[in-house]
Simulated assay, not measured.
Amino acid sequence: MDTKCIIEIGGAASQCHAVEILKSWGYYVIVVDLDDKCAGSVLADKFYNVSTSDVDSIVDIAKKENACAVFSVQSDLGMMTAARVSEILGLKGTPLEIVELFTNKSRMRDFLKNNGYLYPEYRMCYSDEDIKEFAENNGYPFVIKPLNSQGSRGVKIIENEDMLPRLENSEQYNRGINGVIVEDYLGNEEYTVEGIVIEGKHYTLGISQKTHYENLNCVSKELYYSWSPEYDELISSHNHLIELTGLPFGITHSEYIKSKKGFILVEFAARGGGSMIASHVVPAISGWDVEEIYLRELLDEEVIIKKQEHNYSVLKFLELEERIIGRIEGIDDILAMESILHFELHYGVGDKVQPVLNDTNRHGFYIAWAKSAEELHEVMNKVEKILKVIYKE
């Protein structure tokens, strides 16, 4: 590969694997992010302290640096900005209309309905009266969601009339559009499906079953990746669904709920799952580095399809007590374990632990993998025994 400049939108730690890949190929990598202390600001060859939603500024940067491509991973907002910048500059990328389908929940529902797939009963709401009318017609519980937010922000389960929300409480999390979507609550037996599209063909590479925080049914506490014959029908149906969208290439992350009628799609995304799912979990369970494959397609490099592995993995979020931390033990021992792909704790000694409110402020997490379910459970039990957080009285 010739030395060329490429821009990644977003420099969070979970987005740095792509930077490492590109630098190993000899690319000059620029990262843009509003957080000037993000991990990508150090790793990149050059950093611009610019908002990931600032299309005009990123277009100017791309012109100035003569960038050959602009992309993002693990971020809906970054994907949308990259699509807009690439369209303006005539660069290869995910088409804007495809990104809009994958980021707008109302368009997703319409797409499912028009193509004969199961979907929750839903309605677009533009006023408090619209929400009340949906409740009167469909009953409780139901879910209210912003149209294009990420990380469960603004998502809430409404269980009775006393909990009826104001539109603005969820709408404030939208990006550039009005309204919210309300839909039937289908339960919390939730699954994620990870995959990638290569030359228009979708490959499912992993499926996890989610568990949630006890009092936060919309916030994941654990994603457990395993393999089962009961997933075969879901895999076939999901591959077909993604191919119907027209996504030409790219990583996918989707969420389903299992109901009496079958698996019902909650949402899909034309990006990798956050919290290092795309960069760490998917390669561990499948043997496919999906970010490398995505970048090869973006840059018109050859992609070699190899045999898929079927390993096991867990993305486990930590739950601490809401107290002041006095001492932490065991982190070095956990990091030394071969089965641990990543571990991070968002609090240190002397910090007051705050309550978990959504996906963005969970207390920390680790990622582990193994060749079998039995081995993975042993690893999880070992982590639980080793990690000790001692609180001040």
Rank of each mutant, 00 (worst) to 15 (best):
L101E: 03
D76E: 15
E121I: 04
S236Q: 12
I257T: 15
E8G: 12
L265K: 00
H212A: 03
V19H: 00
P229M: 03
Y27C: 09
H240N: 04
I324H: 02
M1L: 05
N114H: 10
T103Y: 02
R84H: 08
P120I: 08
A13G: 08
L241V: 07
E374M: 11
A373L: 06
S254A: 15
Y391G: 05
T204L: 07
R153N: 00
I277C: 03
E214W: 10
V193F: 08
R327Y: 05
P146L: 12
N217Y: 04
A67S: 11
R107V: 01
Y48E: 13
V290N: 11
I251A: 13
L234M: 02
G262M: 08
P95Q: 09
L247W: 04
G348T: 07
K105D: 10
I235Y: 03
S372Y: 00
M80Q: 10
I325A: 14
D232E: 15
V290I: 15
K306S: 11
V73T: 13
Y173Q: 06
C38E: 00
F47E: 11
D110V: 12
Y203H: 15
E65P: 02
E121G: 00
G246Y: 00
E133A: 12
T192F: 04
G250V: 11
I30T: 03
Y27N: 01
D35A: 14
E159P: 01
I328S: 09
L147S: 05
Y117P: 00
D232S: 12
A336V: 02
E374A: 07
Y140W: 14
K221Q: 15
L167H: 10
Y28H: 14
H212L: 05
R84I: 10
E384K: 15
W227L: 11
E87P: 00
A270F: 06
I196K: 02
H363C: 11
K210E: 04
L34G: 13
F47L: 10
V349A: 07
Y140A: 09
I304Q: 11
A67K: 00
S254H: 09
G154F: 06
D359S: 14
I30R: 09
N148Y: 05
Y122I: 03
H253M: 08
S275C: 03
V70C: 07
G187K: 05
Q15D: 08
L234D: 04
L387T: 01
E222A: 11
E230H: 07
V353I: 05
E87L: 06
G274D: 04
L77N: 10
P283H: 06
I88Q: 10
M124K: 05
H240K: 13
V55R: 08
S53R: 08
E267N: 12
Y294Q: 09
N49T: 05
G206C: 07
M124S: 08
D332Q: 15
